[in-house]
Every structure is written in C-alpha cells, then in structure tokens.
Design a protein around this nucleic acid. Structure first.
Lengths: 336, 336
DNA sequence: TTGAAAGCGCTACCAC
DNA sequence: GTGGTAGCGCTTTCAA
C-alpha cells in the first residue's frame, strides 16, 4: 500500500508537505498542492487514521455499549446517537452485552484500550456493575443512558414516576388487583425503578402492591405465570402492568393463544412506546419514552465532556407520555 | 496517563519486557512478570490498541455499513454479525446510510482510512453504487449483505424467487389482480429483484403484471395510492404484495383507519418475516428471511477473506420460507 | 513555503 | 530471560 512516504518521494517533497496538503492546504503552494493531490489520487493514498490517532492522541471514536439491538428501544436510541456523532465527525464502536455483566466489563476494558474519546452506555444494574465501577475510576468521559443513579451523568425518563403514571391510569379504570410483570434479564435496574413506581401508585391508592413477577424470556416461565394467575389464584389480577412493551407483546400473544380477550378478560399495559405496539389490535396502552432524544442528548452531553466541560454528574430526565390504546379497559366484574 | 515506558521504568525493566508480559507471558520470568503486572495494575496501564494496530498493521476492526437500524431486519442481522465477530475478537465500527449514496461513499472512505480489516455492507443499489465501485478497486475484503450482484461476494435470500413464491401463494388463493407496493427509499436494489419475482409469477399464471407502485415513507403518498386503488380505479386489486413487512404494516394501519377489513376486503402480504408482523391481528402473511444467519454467514465469509482465502466472489443464497398468516384470504368476489 | 526530526505506543528482531 | 532498537504513519515544532 502507498503511504505518506511513498507519496512524498513521488511528489519530490517531504512528508511534512504531504501532511499539510491534507490538513492545512492553505499553507502549501498551489502547484505543490496540485501535484501532491494528483499523486495521492494515482497512488490511492489516504492519510491513515491510525497514524493520526496515535499522533493526535485522539481517536474520534465513541464507544457505545447497549444490552441488545433486538429491542427497538435501543435501535432508536442508536439512531439518535449516530445523528449527533455524525455531525461531529465521530464514529461509533458498538458492542452489545446481552445483559451479561462479564461482557460489560470486558468491553469497557477493550474500549479503554482502544482509547475511544468517550463512552455511551446502558448497564444492567448500576448498583452492581463492576464495569461502571471500573469506568468511574478511569479518566474517560461517559454518559449513562436509561440507567439512573445519583453521582453519574445519566439521560433517561423518570422510570419510577412514569411507572406510577402507568399504574394510576389502570387505577383510573377501576382496577384494584394489578400485577406487575418484568423480564428477568431485562435490566434489573430499570425494572426495579418501575416497580417502585408501581408500588407508589398502589400505596397511594391504599392498595397492597403485589410482589413483582419475573419471567424469563425464551423459557416457559411466562406460561407458568399465566397458568398460576388464571388457574390457581383465587382472585386473579384484572390488569397486568408489564415492564417493557416487548414483554407486553409476548403476554398478549400468549393470552391470545389461550383465547383470553383483551381488555374484556384482562387489561395489559406496557412500557416503552414501541411503534409495533400501536399496530396490534387492540393497540397497546403504554408509556412512551423518547428514545432517539435520549440518544441525542446523551451524545451531546458526552461531546461536551469530551470538549473539556466539567462533568456535571447530573441526571437528565426527559419527558415520558402515556399512550392510551385499547389494551386497557374496565376491570372484569365478578373476579375469577 | 501511564504508558509502556513509565511502567518499564517503575518495574526496572525494558519496554520489550513489559510488552512480553502482555503478549507472551511465558517468555518472562515469573518474578518479573508479577512485578510488571502489579505495577501495571497500580498505574492502570493497559496496552494501547492504537499502538498495536499501527505496529501490527491490523486493526481487528470490521466496518459495518447498513441502510438503517429502524428496520429490525438489520438489527437482527447485526446481532448475527456481532456473534461471529465476538468469537474472533473483532469489534464493529457501525455506520448507517439512510439509503443516502453520498453517505455511502463518504463512509467507505473513512473506513478505508481507518484501516478496518474488512467490510460488511448493504448498499442501496449495486448497479449505481459509487461506494461499491470505489471499494472494488481497493484491496480490502468485503462481503455484501442483502444485495446480490454477479461478480461480488454476497449473502442474501434469492429475492426474486422468494417474491415469486409470495405471489404464487396469492395466486393460489385465487387472486388475479395483485398489485405490488414498494417503498421509494427502501432499497431500489432489493425491491427491483422482488418486483422481477412478482412479474415471474404473474406471467407464469398468464396474467398481466401491474406496474410497481412506489410510495415514500413519511409522506402522504401511501394515502394517495390507496385513494387511487379504492376510489378511482375501476377494478381495484384484491391483493397487495408489499416489498417489506414495515411497509405492509403501514398499509394495514392505513387500511384499518379506513375501516377496510383484511383479508375480507383485501389481502395484504409482506416480505421479511418480522416478528412484529406475527403479533398483529390478522397475523401478516409474509416471506421470512434468516437475518441473523445472513449476518453470521457474511461475517464468516469476511473472516475467511481476511484470513487470506481467495475471494470467491460468489452469491450465497440462504433459504427463505413462507409464513402463512391470516392477512391473505380469498379474493373479494364482485370486484370494486 | 518547505524540510528535518522528534515522538505518539507498540512489537519483534537480533543480540547477549 | 532480557534489552536495545528500528519502524509502523502521522503531525507539529523549529529552523531555514
């Protein structure tokens, strides 16, 4: 391959001049510039970014670490991130952890060694994240997305408040026996906050919160849970609040297979505001969060940190909204 | 920051020894090794990947360039890619083009300069891609995904055949007036192949293919098209074959707003096999393609090329499958 | 307007 | 086992 040296030789100038042609062309005599550029074209020479990174001690790379891409929540978020990074000529090094905390740590290590300019990430659980502990002792800018934890710079919705709003909505329909369902692997962190919001709303209404029901995607635990609710429990819940839309969609699918009608037999509510939830019948009632905006805001804040601004270590809560579909209705009277 | 030199000084050894501690620890006396590693830990030293990349002339980076992440097709594909790359200690540099060919070119340029080990990409249109033209004159391994074009190494389903199967399915229900709808921006390349398949099936059945109807996402052109079919055309189509599931879902949503029932009033078929299409009522009849496998296969082929195997420049077609939902039924008798 | 040279962090060859 | 060192591709300072 051609490199700066071979081009310099062919153009009968020094490598410094070749470098200037690409980085500060106004400093080069037009004739020299033209000659160097022509030869570069012929030789297919392009300044190596690796060399620049080493010399400039800056990579223009931002590490992005998310739980998964299967959830459109994160896909949308990445869209927002990319938009902002693109405007600042930064590229994205993407890794997904599948909620595996050992992967989290391992990737952080790699990204640190790769000398990315900064990091945008969502960890499974801020309280128990070795990755986050590691990161916080290093001198690398980062912003958390979807997580929230005091002392960190985070961008998310207020999950607790949002979940509280969700459950209030159910209460408003007259539901009293409201269960909350969460995915095992689906971010203990966020689920936990959402469960607190559920409790808040229940207690506020003078009701006893039910324990959180956790199910494991891909296994039959959802079936088991439904079996319990519908066939074992004496007075089954009249509404299920799911910690994510993906989970709510699974639930709806499972209920449909059992010929249980929504919302006549039971109400189902989600959380995330996935577009796909609005396409099903009945449309999913849910809390929508601005995923693209979360990505954009996080990226912008990261860029500010990279630019040398002091890390504010503050939580930014973006607004959520209630999306009223038809999957929530009046509670079935008479109970099970 | 600490670097190999500062560690060497503190450990009272040479930088060569420090390097060996990380890359070939068995060559180092245990006592020395322990000392170096301890000091590295204290000093938070990690070998810089940039330095390694420069020296080894290898980045362990793979560029991935896709049209968008909003379409779960690509999100799933990335999942497959990541799985394979992860097993080979390679990382992913991800960019999305939004079907913008100037972005395509620009990103290829960057990725070339970044000296990625190879490239996995989907271009809007192989025939008119300057990005692809550029790439093919460079000495960089790459594999196309979803595209297919002779002379390139590609991984995809056989879109033409798959679309033909789709339309045959519609024909099997007795449909004769079958329209095909495609998104404007949604990959002229693939849409074109799928339209050929549509034609194949129509001609095979002795029917006159209708011209391809193209709509632009986000604008009202879909409305205009439906308006035409339902209110202007004398004998409207009894079935619509959409070039993607995302489009089919849009269509279903729009039809629902007009209180047009599927499949009683009109049948709708998609292409992609999105999970979400199976959650709606009626479940979307569609062609499913193995997105994760496309990603995996493409990544594996790329790794082989990187490993020095001769680029076969052959098309790999993976199997598609017909997913029969309930969005396709018997044609409405009596016509419009 | 240009060139020489130092040095970014690292590996690997060669010598001991 | 270990050290010295050249050199990967580049930018930038200093001098001319």
């Amino acid at each position: 391959m051609s490199n700066i040296k071979s081009v310099a030789k062919l153009a009968a100038c020094s490598i410094a001049t070749v470098s200037r042609c690409f980085n500060a062309p106004h400093l080069v005599r037009p004739a020299t510039l033209a000659r160097v550029m022509e030869i570069s074209r012929q030789q297919k020479f392009r300044p190596s970014i690796i060399g620049q990174q080493l010399r400039r001690n800056q990579t223009d790379l931002v590490g992005v670490m998310l739980p998964s891409l299967g959830n459109p929540v994160f896909a949308d978020c990445i869209g927002g991130i990319e938009q902002v990074l693109g405007q600042h000529n930064k590229r994205m090094l993407l890794t997904t952890t599948q909620y595996d905390s050992s992967k989290e740590e391992q990737f952080i290590e790699i990204l640190l060694r790769q000398k990315v300019d900064g990091l945008l990430l969502t960890v499974a659980d801020t309280k128990n994240s070795r990755a986050l502990a590691l990161l916080s002792t290093e001198n690398m800018p980062y912003v958390l997305m979807y997580n929230h934890a005091a002392g960190y710079e985070t961008v998310s919705v207020d999950d607790r408040k949002a979940a509280c709003d969700a459950v209030r909505h159910l209460l408003g329909f007259g539901h009293r026996r409201i269960a909350m369902l969460a995915g095992f692997l689906t971010a203990s962190d966020r689920s936990a906050h959402r469960y607190l919001g559920y409790r808040d709303a229940m207690l506020e209404a003078g009701l006893e919160p039910m324990p959180l029901s956790e199910v494991d995607f891909g296994t039959r635990t959802l079936e088991t849970q439904l079996q319990y609710w519908f066939h074992t429990m004496s007075r089954r819940p009249t509404a299920i609040f799911c910690s994510t839309d993906l989970l709510a969609l699974e639930v709806i699918k499972a209920l449909r297979q059992r010929s249980i009608h929504i919302p006549q037999d039971i109400s189902v509510m989600g959380f995330d505001g996935l577009e796909y939830g609005q396409l099903i019948e009945p449309a999913l009632t849910t809390i929508s969060q601005p995923n693209g905006e979360i990505g954009r805001q996080a990226a912008e804040r990261l860029l500010r940190q990279i630019g040398g601004e002091r890390n504010e270590r503050e939580s930014l809560f973006l607004n959520h909204a209630l999306l009223a579909g038809r999957s929530v209705g009046l509670p079935q009277t008479g109970g099970s």
